[in-house]
């Protein structure tokens, strides 16, 4: 069976070393996409993919993308929680790929919460 071996990884390895301060504990923001069954059925994978592509495009090295399970709010999926170091988490609901890109650009990059898309601001936790 052919193993996926990737020559380009070599180049990337060097490049990443030189350009980035990587994510070694320096993450400034974390985005958690909810990947429960109804989240996935409602398009959570596409939300996460769109985020990854936008992060790549904007060369953001200090943003972590992760997933969590069910958030208990099927009807508002896809959902994502944004946490910026030192501030309370914000939960965004009824996401589309366009909305999540805007969340990245307006909230994560510029620091302004988009109230129109947010569920509640306060003490929510991602598990």
């Amino acid at each position: 069976m052919k193993k996926l071996k990737i020559g380009d990884l070599e180049k990337i390895r060097e490049k990443v070393r030189r350009t980035a301060n990587l994510r070694q504990g320096k993450a400034r923001a974390k985005i958690t996409v909810h990947m429960g069954t109804c989240g996935i059925a409602a398009g959570a994978r596409e939300i996460l993919s769109a985020l990854l592509k936008e992060i790549e495009k904007k060369k953001l090295n200090d943003v972590i993308v992760t997933t969590s399970g069910c958030a208990g709010l099927c009807s508002r999926e896809p959902m994502a929680t944004v946490e910026i170091t030192g501030r309370p988490p914000v939960k965004y609901v009824d996401l589309t790929t366009e909305k999540i890109k805007k969340v990245l650009n307006v909230h994560i990059i510029k620091g302004n919460i988009i109230n129109d898309y947010a569920l509640a601001i306060g003490s929510e936790r991602t598990h």
Partner: peptide, 16 residues
Amino acid sequence: ELNGVPINNAEVLNIL
């Protein structure tokens, strides 16, 4: 193979 470069790095993911 990545030898310390995080596998979740955006550029690495693109190549993958």
